[in-house]
Amino acid sequence: MTEASKREIMIATIAELLRGVRHVAVGAASPIPAAGAMLRRALAEEEATPPVRLSILGSVAHNFFTNGSVELFDCAGQGRIDAFFLSGGQIDGQGNVNLVGVGDYPNGKVRWPGSFGSSYLYFVVPRVILFREEHSPRIFVEKVDFISAPGASPEGVYRPGGPSALLTGLGLFDFESSRPGFTLRSVHPGHSLEEIRAATGFSFAHEPQPPLTQAPTPETLALLRGRVLDELAETYPGFAAELAAEITTTGGD
């Protein structure tokens, strides 16, 4: 079997971050988080741990909601969703997420689609994983221009949820809400601490020599390349085909 590609390492990392969840929801247009969640479900079966429920928005086969698009939020508000994924046009060192735009609101120079459900889900889902494959100072800024969803809240604000980790194409960070701030947990193979520093607009804690992000075991990789890829093809046919093509060529980049 060829070595794990960078995307496969990210998918396997997400599956690791989801260990122990009962119900994970994945938003629209999120193929890597969806693959990670499917891998967690498959691993839970292999490991004979409690089953993992998946709600993938935009999927027919992996979405069991029957009460319209409000059900995801109602479900999350009651604590019935353990993990969710958020991305951002900007993410800052305090875990604030901006999905609205760059510059002075409302007529700034760049407008993104909008906050979607982030201003709510970030508060009520215990394990929110921030995911953005592109890792650049344009995205990871000192301070966001608009807070769609804040990384931490003052005492007295109802906040059972929030960010737990940040995964990018370069590395994996943990979030500490007490500071609040990020700590680099590991660097993906082929990258370095210096590279991450240069690509990140905010300061973060780290060990002098952070470890490499763990590659999946051959068993996990086999599960990912088999069952998970098949499941993924229903919702993300284009992405599944790309991933399959990667496997048969270099196995990495």
Partner: peptide, 11 residues
């Protein structure tokens, strides 16, 4: 719930 501390609410 939610929304507190966001610019969505502030606006």
């Amino acid at each position: 719930r939610g929304l507190l501390g966001t610019d969505v609410l502030a606006q």
